[in-house]
């Protein structure tokens, strides 16, 4: 087994001790089939137990381990380490406040997420006794890929608007709201489109498409945001003529 060494330049920050984040370097032997997360785990287990970061499933489905690797937002459990040269820079996810080392504060995301009402909104709930809603495979295909979001927030790190406009709802939140707008069982388009036109409006999106480029799950949030723009606009126009109704 070929043993190669790499140097990891890792951002460190402890608010009780540091005014601002600094970096520390770790040189370790790496295996050819490692993901970047494997290197972090090795460093924590055998070199420096004080390194703090989030991870759990290690199979790219829980969304915990998003970080900046050589300046790019990556899911470190999926990120192939061998693609990098001798030096690898690991930093916390961009555009988020940093709590400690590689750990970001993402309550800001959770708030934007809740604002888009990511649940089935109906005027009247269906009774359990009536069984499931009928939904054809075509109707399911309408929104299925938008429902694949693992909330890893790499898209927020990549979006230039998120860097500049704190109020912007952001790719994942809009994509998840739009997922419910497209779901045939939902009746909440009106309420959600009002959120889409309100504070942090979808119209702040400047067609950068960076979000879709970094998404590890091929959710294509750029598609959702731009579809949401049209949906919100049509809804507004309709609202000028017809009375507003629908569940809130």
């Amino acid at each position: 087994m070929g043993e190669q060494k790499k140097t990891f330049v890792v951002t460190r920050f402890d608010p009780d001790r540091d005014d601002a984040p600094t970096t520390r370097e770790y040189e370790i032997a790496v295996q050819p089939d490692w993901k970047t997360l494997d290197a972090l785990n090795f460093i924590k287990d055998h070199v420096d137990g004080t390194l703090a970061y989030r991870w759990s499933c290690r199979m790219a489905v829980c969304g915990s381990c998003g970080m900046m690797v050589n300046g790019e937002p990556r899911l470190t459990c999926k990120d192939v380490l061998s693609q990098y040269g001798d030096t690898v820079h690991i930093a916390p996810l961009a555009n988020f406040p940093v709590v400690r080392d590689l750990v970001i504060e993402f309550d800001g995301f959770m708030e934007k997420f809740e604002r888009v009402k990511p649940w089935i909104l109906r005027a009247k709930e269906k009774a359990v006794e009536e069984g499931t809603h009928r939904q054809s495979p075509e109707q399911l295909a309408d929104f299925q890929h938008f429902s694949m979001c693992i909330n890893c927030m790499l898209c927020y790190a990549a979006c230039p608007v998120v860097s500049n406009e704190p109020a912007f709802l952001g790719p994942a939140a809009i994509a998840l709201g739009h997922r419910y707008n497209l779901d045939s069982r939902d009746e909440g388009n009106g309420a959600r489109n009002q959120v889409f036109r309100g504070d942090g409006t979808v119209f702040s999106c400047s067609y950068a498409n960076e979000c879709s480029e970094v998404c590890p799950k091929k959710v294509d949030p750029a598609a959702a945001v731009n579809q949401a723009k049209i949906g919100a606009l049509l809804d507004w126009a309709k609202g000028l003529v017809l009375p507003r109704g629908g569940p809130e």
Binding site: I120, T132, S136, P137, Q139, L140, F143, S147
Partner: peptide
């Protein structure tokens, strides 16, 4: 399902 779970479907929507 009522809460939104995207169960895979048969052609007839069940």
């Amino acid at each position: 399902e009522h809460w939104g779970c995207p169960w895979s479907r048969n052609e007839d929507g069940t």
